[in-house]
Amino acid sequence: MIRFGYADTPFGQIHYASCGTGEPVLLLHQTPRSWDEYREVLPLLGRTRRAVAMDTLGFGNSARPPDHSIETYAAGVLALMDALDLPRAAVAGHHTGGVVAVETAARAPERVTALVLSSTPLIDPEGRRRRAGRPSIDAVREHADGSHLGDLWSRRAPYYPWPLLTRFVRDALTVLPEVERGHEAVAAYRMEERVGLVRCPVLCVGATDDPFAFPELERLTAALPHSTQAVVKGGVIPLEHQAEEFAALVQEFLDTRSGQAG
C-alpha cells in the first residue's frame, strides 16, 4: 500500500509517498513531474525496502522553494531526510532527479549510501553550451480557451505513450507558469565541480530509446568515481514505461551493495 504524507521542513511542507519498510531508498522525479512518476516503482521496491518518492520543492504538492536551483532542490532532499529521521539513504533519480541526486551526494556524502542515476545528463561546459540555445521544452502560454493544454500534449506526444501523457500533463499543469524552472536549473548547474565529491557507489542507467539522455550515458559514467552502468533496452523518457526493469536494476544494485557492506 502506498501511503502519503507531508513533512515539515525549513522550506515549508514537502509532500511524499512511501511504501514498505527496511533500508530506505529515496526517489527523485524528472521535471515537471511529481512522486507519481514512481507510482508503479514504489510497490516493487517496497517489497524489501522503505521506498520514498518525494515531490521536489516547487513541484507536485511540495512547497515553493526560495529559488529554483539544483542546490536548493538537493537541500530539500536532505531536509526531507531530516524530517523523516533518515540519517542515511540510497538515492535514485530520473533525468532532473538524477542531477539533484548527484548534488545531494556531493553536499552530504556521509548521508548517501548509493546513487542510481537514470537517464541523467552530464552538465559540464559542453552540456551547458548545448542547452544555452535550446528552445524551451514545456513552457507554454496559458490561454482562456484552454489551447495550452493541447500545446503541452503535443510537445511531449512524440516521446510519451498516451496513458502516461495524461499523467505528465496533469503534473505540468500543477506548476504552470513555472513549468520550465527545473530545466533551467539543470542548464545552469556546474556538475563537473561536484562529481568528484561523490563517495558512494553509483549505477548509471540508460534507456536506449531516450534520444536526449542515452547519448550521454558513457560520459556520465566516466565522470563519476565508483560507477557502473546498465542499459534498459527499449526504455524511453517516461520512467513509468520501464518501471519493472528500473525497479529490478535498483533492487539488484542495492542488494549487491548491502552484501558487500556486510
Results as ranks from 00 to 15, higher is better:
Y189A: 11
Q251N: 06
G196N: 14
G5V: 05
L165C: 09
V77C: 13
T31R: 03
A89C: 13
A213R: 04
L254H: 10
P135Y: 11
I2F: 04
D8N: 12
R190I: 06
P87L: 02
G20C: 09
G60N: 13
G127D: 07
E23C: 01
P225S: 06
G127T: 01
R170K: 12
V205Y: 00
G133N: 13
A89G: 05
S154T: 12
G262T: 13
R219D: 13
F168H: 15
P225G: 05
M81H: 13
L80M: 12
A92E: 04
A51C: 10
Q229F: 03
A89K: 04
A89Y: 09
T21V: 10
T174D: 07
A144D: 09
A248Y: 01
E218T: 14
Y189C: 11
T9G: 13
R181K: 14
E192S: 12
A172W: 05
V175R: 01
V100T: 15
A92D: 06
R33N: 06
T72F: 02
H94A: 12
A51V: 14
A108V: 11
L122D: 06
L115V: 14
G234A: 02
R134M: 15
D124K: 14
G182L: 11
P121F: 05
R33P: 00
L45A: 10
S227D: 03
E71H: 09
V77P: 09
C204L: 06
A144I: 07
F212T: 12
G150P: 02
W35N: 11
D151A: 15
H148R: 08
V236S: 02
R141K: 08
I123T: 14
P121I: 03
P10Y: 05
Y6H: 07
P121E: 07
G234I: 00
R194H: 14
T120Q: 01
V195C: 05
T21M: 10
A185M: 08
T96A: 04
G127S: 07
G150W: 07
R88Y: 05
P225H: 03
E110T: 10
F246Q: 04
A187N: 12
F246H: 12
G60Y: 10
M191E: 09
L173Q: 12
Q13Y: 01
F214L: 00
A92T: 11
M81Y: 09
G133F: 07
R47N: 03
L122P: 06
R131C: 06
Y189E: 03
R39E: 15
G150F: 08
A222N: 09
L197Y: 06
L176K: 06
A247G: 02
A247P: 01
V198A: 07
G127V: 01
L165G: 08
V231R: 00
V236M: 10
A144E: 12
A53P: 10
R50N: 06
A207L: 01
L239Q: 00
A139G: 02
V175Q: 01
G22V: 09
L217D: 02
F4E: 14
P10L: 08
R130L: 15
V202T: 08
